[in-house]
Design a protein around this nucleic acid. Structure first.
Length: 294
DNA sequence: CGTATTCCCTGCACGC
DNA sequence: TGCGTGCAGGGAATAC
């Protein structure tokens, strides 16, 4: 039963023979795409009931979801970081898709399948169905006028004006953690996960291993611009690939062939053709070009 | 405080 | 073809 210890530190691993598959992991663009797809079907609708098929996802689903939500009218569907908030007068249902979660609006007559953990019953014979095989997601409750503890310490939204190179530069002084870990810290900036961090570092020419405090203001400017550009592109892409807005099932913002770094360890760099390096950093697979990223 | 590590969970790729 | 193993990931919790 010995749990194998993953290789740690910056030591590059041998190139993998198998491919990493960027499946529909909900990163910020996927959550935003889901929000846009769902909003027209939820706003101004009244929740008629809640069907819990499993009492817990990542955490137990609090009784307020069952006790307070039914009868409430959804007045807005918002996103904060990778959380979706279904606002009502009584409070907000707080949803996180984790790694494998998806939300769909379906006719209530569609039988629930495996991992269909929760339905919010909507008017006109429809339900909002939450499916999450790995159960890293959550459904929580935020009373009106309060901010849920999970949302209190979050950093700025990456697409907001509060987020730019100067902000990153100021926040990173004295930090010895690798810049990749720094960028993935939700207290620094929200919603920038493993895929998009790897792509932004590649685009900006910054090594993921470099200490966050040792990245210049100018390079942080390039990083912030890269993060914004990549996220905007992925959101736009999500909007175009989401054919059936009744089923916002996490259409990936990126197609595999658009990725320059993520999942391409050992393959040639798209700039210099040298093989991309891969290592474990902050408990995540990290791919970068040792020549183009410094 | 910052940093590093562990853990939660299941589907799938892979090797035998 | 079937079975066992390892790995993917967000991010909270924990340890230092």
């Amino acid at each position: 039963m010995a749990r194998r210890r993953r290789p740690r530190g910056g030591a590059p691993l041998a190139a993998r023979t198998h491919r990493l598959h960027p499946v529909a992991m909900p990163e910020l663009p996927e959550v935003e795409t889901t929000r846009r797809g769902l909003a027209p079907h939820l706003v101004e609708r009244r929740v008629a009931g809640v069907v819990l098929r499993r009492p817990d996802l990542r955490w137990p689903i609090p009784p307020e979801v069952v006790d307070c939500l039914p009868g409430q009218r959804i007045v807005d569907v918002r996103r904060r970081a990778k959380y979706l908030l279904l606002d009502t007068r009584a409070g907000s249902a707080l949803l996180h898709l984790g790694m494998s979660g998806s939300l769909r609006v379906l006719p209530a007559s569609v039988p629930a399948g495996p991992h269909d953990h929760v339905d919010l019953v909507l008017p006109a014979g429809r339900v909002l169905r939450f499916n999450d095989p790995r159960r890293f997601g959550c459904l929580l409750w935020q009373p009106a006028g309060q901010v849920h503890p999970l949302l209190r310490a979050l950093g700025p939204e990456p697409l907001s004006e509060d987020f730019d190179g100067d902000y990153l530069h100021a926040r990173s002084r004295g930090r010895s953690a690798p810049v990749k870990a720094f960028l993935m810290d939700q207290r620094v900036v929200v919603g920038v996960g493993n895929i998009y961090t790897a792509e932004a570092l590649f685009a900006a020419g910054v090594s993921p291993l470099r200490a966050a405090g040792r990245v210049s203001r100018e390079r942080y400017g390039r990083l912030a611009d890269a993060i914004k550009g990549i996220l905007r592109h992925a959101i736009a892409r999500g909007g175009t690939t989401l054919r059936d807005f009744l089923s916002p099932d996490g259409a990936p913002g990126y197609f595999e062939q658009e990725l320059s770094a993520y999942g391409r360890g050992g393959q040639p760099c798209t700039h210099c053709a040298r093989p991309l390096k891969q290592a474990w950093l902050a408990q995540r697979a990290t791919v970068w070009c040792g020549h183009c990223q410094r």
